[in-house]
């Protein structure tokens, strides 16, 4: 039977389609347009009526899709489901290929990068939206710590893999249900499930899934560090402190002791004492760095310290 052969071919497509590689994939045996157009000859309202029809055979003058042409309801349901799934797969393969071809080096690619980095906003609310907005700005501004193309290359593979996985799961559930009787799993239910497979081919959902995984991983790997104190952004003061500390670091061991004496601070003295009997110069410089970092938080205090150390550094200002 012609329809029985179609059923075998389409069930084969149902089992294998949707996992083609990102690049260099072979041309499909049946072009995408043909697979989609073929489904158009089996419109939904007609196939539902045919599925629920009592008789298996066509009456005189009738032709599929208005009759089942000898197929049982289960066979007919499975054939139509396979046809719709093949059409969905064809569309998905086309979408997937276009994504990989157009993603790099184009505005479209940039938009994908921004979409990917904004993806967390889909799941995590306002704070996440702000976080990823910052990340997007970095990509959009071209000052990223990540290369946009490299990002797309890696991220897109992950997103496509996520979509492939979601589709494969949804398709597996359909294949399992196709073993059920026509009463237990009707054609409208099967078509609705095919729609769910189609819904998996959405970038935002794939990104959401990836983000959820990343968040779960992060929670698993969470490691807390014992933070001594919080430090806010300091602007130019940080640069000036850095210059002073570089000059201090260049002094010899005897001068370092003089620096400690000139600073005359009990907290610094205690941290030097804690180093032991005869700490080396580098260890003392390290403690001076920490003291300066922690205790000099305003311009006035910095200028005062610079003045104290001027005889040792030879500089009146930084």
């Amino acid at each position: 039977m012609r329809q029985a052969r179609t059923l075998v071919v389409m069930l084969g497509l149902l089992a294998t389609a949707g996992c083609t590689s990102l690049r260099g994939s072979a041309e499909p045996v049946i072009p995408v347009r043909d697979r989609v157009n073929y489904v158009a000859t089996y419109p939904e309202d007609t196939v539902y009526k045919t599925f629920f029809a009592l008789k298996d055979n066509c009456s005189s003058g009738e032709r599929p899709p208005v009759c089942r042409d000898g197929l049982t309801r289960v066979q007919y349901r499975n054939m139509i489901t396979a046809l719709y799934m093949s059409s969905a797969d064809a569309r998905y393969e086309e979408f997937r290929t276009r994504l990989s071809q157009e993603a790099k080096g184009t505005a479209f690619g940039g938009n994908i990068a921004i979409l990917l980095m904004n993806g967390i906003s889909v799941v995590s609310g306002n704070e996440a939206r702000r976080a990823l907005a910052a990340g997007s700005a970095v990509v959009a501004g071209g000052q990223a710590s990540v290369s946009k193309d490299l990002f797309i290359d890696k991220a897109l593979s992950a997103v496509l893999a996520s979509m492939d996985g979601a589709r494969a799961e949804a398709k597996t559930r359909i294949v399992e249900k196709l073993r059920l009787s026509a009463e237990q799993y009707s054609l409208p239910e099967a078509i609705a499930d095919v729609r769910r497979v189609e819904e998996q081919a959405r970038l935002d959902q794939a990104i959401q899934k990836l983000t959820s995984t990343a968040v779960a991983d992060a929670e698993e790997k969470q490691k807390k560090l014992d933070v001594a104190y919080m430090v806010e952004l300091q602007g130019p003061l940080a640069t000036r402190k850095g210059a002073l500390l570089r000059d201090i670091g260049a002094l010899d061991a005897a001068k370092i002791d003089e620096v400690i004496k000139a600073l005359d601070d009990p907290q610094l003295d205690a941290s030097i004492t804690a180093l032991g009997a005869s700490p080396d110069k580098d260890a003392k410089v390290g403690r001076i760095r920490v003291w300066v970092h922690q205790n000099i938080l305003a311009e006035a205090k910095f200028d005062e310290t610079v003045a104290k150390l001027a005889p040792l550094t030879g500089k009146e200002s930084y």
Binding site: A131, V138, D226, V227, A228, M230, E232, L233, A283
Partner: peptide
């Protein structure tokens, strides 16, 4: 010999890098 300090959790990526 290391020293650990904390940054505000509200910093954006560019602010954290700064």
């Amino acid at each position: 010999d290391t020293h650990i300090v904390g940054a505000k959790k509200t910093y954006s990526l560019p602010e954290l890098n700064q």
